[in-house]
Amino acid sequence: NKASVVANQLIPINTALTLIMMKAEVVTPMGIPAEEIPKLVGMQVNRAVPLGTTLMPDKVKNYE
């Protein structure tokens, strides 16, 4: 099972992601793969992401 990116804290809307905000966890359904964490640093979320929520591609601005 592959790990996904999960919010390590509440991430407010329009916040630029940092390493400390994210952790890798095996979750269902799968979100953004954990190996993409370095790519996500500096990207902004387009909505608030509660603690423990899986980061889905549609929650990150300009994620492809």
Rank of each mutant, 00 (worst) to 15 (best):
E36Y: 11
L40A: 01
R47P: 08
E25W: 10
P33Q: 06
R47A: 15
M43S: 06
I37C: 08
L17N: 01
I20D: 14
V49E: 07
N8Q: 11
A3H: 10
A7G: 03
N46M: 11
T28C: 15
P38K: 09
P50R: 07
A16R: 14
P29M: 06
E25I: 09
K23L: 07
I32M: 04
M43D: 04
V26Y: 14
Y63N: 03
M56R: 06
A24P: 10
T28A: 12
E36P: 01
K23S: 08
T53H: 13
V6F: 04
P33N: 08
D58S: 10
I20N: 12
V49I: 15
I11L: 01
T54P: 07
K59I: 15
E64I: 15
I11F: 03
P12K: 08
I11R: 00
V49H: 08
I11P: 01
Q9S: 08
L19V: 09
K59F: 15
S4N: 05
V27T: 09
A16G: 07
P29C: 09
G31H: 06
K61W: 10
G42E: 03
M30A: 14
K61I: 15
V60T: 01
G42A: 04
N62R: 08
L19F: 11
A48D: 15
M21F: 05
K23A: 09
L55E: 03
Q9N: 04
T15E: 07
P12V: 07
A34Q: 06
M56E: 06
K2D: 08
I13W: 07
I20S: 13
N62T: 04
T28Y: 15
T18S: 10
V27L: 03
P33W: 08
G42M: 03
P33I: 03
M56C: 10
A48Y: 09
P38V: 09
T18G: 04
G52H: 04
V60P: 00
K39W: 13
T18L: 08
Q9H: 03
Q44A: 08
E35A: 12
N8E: 03
V6S: 02
A16P: 14
N1T: 14
P38W: 10
P38T: 10
V5H: 05
T28K: 11
K61S: 09
N46F: 08
T15S: 09
M21R: 00
M21L: 04
L55Q: 04
E64R: 11
V27E: 02
L19H: 08
N46D: 07
G52D: 04
A16I: 14
T28I: 13
T53C: 13
K61A: 10
M43L: 12
N46C: 13
K59Y: 15
L51M: 15
A24S: 12
G42C: 08
E36H: 12
E35Y: 13
P50C: 09
P38G: 09
V41Q: 05
E25M: 15
D58W: 15
L19E: 09
A24F: 06
D58Y: 13
K39M: 13
N8H: 06
A3W: 09
A7M: 05
Y63V: 06
L10T: 13
T18C: 07
M43G: 02
L51I: 13
M43W: 02
Q44L: 11
P57S: 06
G31C: 06
P12H: 07
V45D: 05
N8F: 08
V26W: 12
S4H: 04
L17Q: 00
K39D: 11
V5E: 02
G52S: 04
P29Y: 07
V27M: 05
A16H: 13
A48T: 15
T15W: 08
N1W: 14
I32T: 00
E64H: 14
N1V: 14
V27R: 15
P33T: 05
V26E: 08
N8V: 11
M56V: 06
P12C: 09
I11G: 00
A16Q: 12
M56Y: 09
M56P: 02
P57N: 00
A34H: 04
Q9K: 10
P29W: 07
N14E: 08
E35G: 11
T15V: 10
V45L: 08
T54R: 00
E25F: 09
A3C: 12
A16M: 12
V6Y: 03
A24L: 06
Q9F: 08
V5G: 02
V41K: 00
G42K: 00
T18M: 07
K59A: 15
R47E: 15
L17C: 06
V60D: 01
L51Y: 14
N1L: 14
I37T: 03
M43H: 09
I20T: 12
Y63S: 02
A3P: 12
T54K: 01
V5T: 05
K59M: 15
N14T: 05
N14R: 05
M43R: 08
T54W: 00
K59G: 15
E36A: 10
V6N: 01
N14C: 14
Q44H: 11
L19Y: 11
V26P: 05
P50D: 09
V6M: 04
E64S: 14
A16F: 15
V49G: 03
V60K: 02
I20Y: 12
P50G: 08
K2V: 12
V6A: 02
A3S: 09
N62S: 07
V6P: 03
I32N: 01
L55I: 13
L40R: 01
A34L: 04
T53D: 15
T28R: 11
L55P: 02
P29A: 03
M43N: 04
K39L: 13
A7Q: 02
I37H: 00
M30Y: 12
L40S: 02
V41M: 02
N8L: 08
I32P: 02
A34D: 04
A16Y: 15
G52K: 01
P57E: 04
A48S: 11
K2S: 11
L55F: 07
E64Y: 13
A24G: 10
L51E: 15
G42R: 00
R47S: 15
A24M: 06
N46Q: 07
A24H: 04
L17F: 06
V27D: 01
N46S: 11
A3M: 11
N14W: 15
I13H: 06
T28L: 12
M22C: 06
L10V: 08
L55N: 00
V5Q: 03
T15I: 09
N14G: 10
A48L: 12
A16W: 12
K61N: 10
P57D: 04
T53F: 08
V45W: 00
A3L: 09
P12W: 07
V45M: 00
A7N: 02
T53S: 13
P38H: 10
P38C: 13
L19I: 10
K61M: 12
M43T: 03
A7Y: 04
M30V: 12
I32H: 04
V45R: 00
A7E: 02
V45T: 09
M30H: 12
A48Q: 12
A34F: 06
K39A: 11
I20C: 13
Y63D: 04
